[in-house]
Nucleic acid binder design. Structure first.
Lengths: 222, 222
DNA sequence: AAAATTAAAAATATCGATATTTCTTGACAC
DNA sequence: GTGTCAAGAAATATCGATATTTTTAATTTT
């Protein structure tokens, strides 16, 4: 078989497919925060059996995107202002650590990969669709990739995803963003390429704090 | 039915039971690092079906105690010197953050719970069995419990467990420990009760670093 | 003898069905 | 009218069986 899903990820197993699909639906808000996730319903939506769905939900539990309720099944993790602030705080701490380690150990292979991922992101521009989202995440992860700690990277990746969810949640309300985000990315890249880890970390954290303030404002009127 | 397992945790579901049992077997080294985890074998050992075992393994994957290999099942996460150092580094960073936040927000309820958990641990003494291990973890988690960030607590708890594993791994080789660990615990407790977050953090991190050095030495000759 | 091929065995992933548990609803008592 | 309880409905958790996939072992080919 080897069916491909919307975003073009080749699915090796039914479980993997269900995992990616459900994750996507939660991140984009297609499955709203706090909603009950009924096995039968998901089974139908994804055209698969109950076992892969259950296993996918188990995996998402550890990503903190799904909660398991004792003997009562699963639900999409609730979203709240305080949860968002927690994610922001942890991201700032962990990514600060990761980007410093990454830049401090910089070598030309890593630099090449970083420049490349920035270029790819730029080319797609902020069209807001899934391909840009992926490229954007790739750029941010490429920045941290050289830190040498797979576990730290995993945490950062997880927190990044949790944050995306709030971007989609806030997307509904209108508000003008006076920031120049591509420029912020360029500046972060530039600091990294100059091997100035403190500056890169500063700029990255500022980038997140600004987005955080923007999202907090948006979330307030939802 | 409501069977109870070795350690006296009442198991609500077969999955939960399998999860706790397998986790325990990996932490104590009964299932050695890197070993293939065959569903059938575990199914027999735990007297349960394949579904709960699979789901338990999925959950353990996110705890980083089990690895899933594409279409080839599961294996106990490998252990290595560098993995141990990574865990130690992350624990120091995250617990430093957590204990500061926790102590800075100290109130009498939290202080009571902390003193109580210390007392319980002391009473069991370091007999090395599972009940002491649980009490020891409870004390360390009680220290962080007031930090106000459930996610940070989850990470710390996860890292604590990953670390236990290396303690069991090193337990085989002989070496005299000149440290007075109960005294270190008392000092950490004392700093926390005095609401001196910087001192508490310092003492906690030193405590971990010392254990880290000891374990590193032990691991070397394995 | 080494490499490649293939057939058999083992293990995994998935399905469909069943046993439990939780949730809902309506009757009855107060 | 409100609260309790029981029966039925819905959903979950688990089991046993089957279809795939991977591994092993044996056979053939170079």
């Amino acid at each position: 078989m080897n069916i491909q899903n919307d975003r073009g990820q080749k699915e090796t197993s039914a479980t993997q497919g269900a995992y990616l699909s459900i994750r996507d639906m939660i991140l984009t808000g297609q499955l709203p925060a706090g909603d009950k996730l009924k096995i039968e319903k998901l089974r139908m939506m994804l055209n698969t059996g109950a076992s892969p769905v259950r296993e996918a939900l188990s995996l998402l539990t550890s990503d903190m995107l799904v909660e398991r309720i004792d003997q009562r099944g699963f639900r999409a993790a609730p979203a709240s202002q305080s949860n968002f602030e927690e994610i922001l705080m942890l991201r700032c701490s962990l990514e600060d650590m990761a980007v410093r380690m990454s830049v401090d150990k910089a070598d030309s292979d890593w630099e090449d990969a970083l420049v490349l991922s920035h270029h790819r992101m730029k080319k797609l521009a902020a069209n807001g669709d899934a391909t840009f989202e992926d490229a954007h995440k790739s750029f941010h992860m490429a920045l941290l990739d050289n830190c040498g700690s797979p576990m730290l990277l995993k945490y950062c990746s997880q927190l990044y995803d949790l944050n995306i969810r709030y971007r989609y949640l806030a997307a509904g309300s209108e508000s003008y963003q006076s920031r120049n985000i591509p420029a912020e990315h360029e500046e972060i890249l530039s600091a990294a390429v100059q091997r100035d880890s403190a500056l890169a970390a500063d700029r990255l954290i500022t980038h997140y704090r600004l987005t955080g303030e923007y999202l907090t404002a948006q979330l307030a009127d939802i």
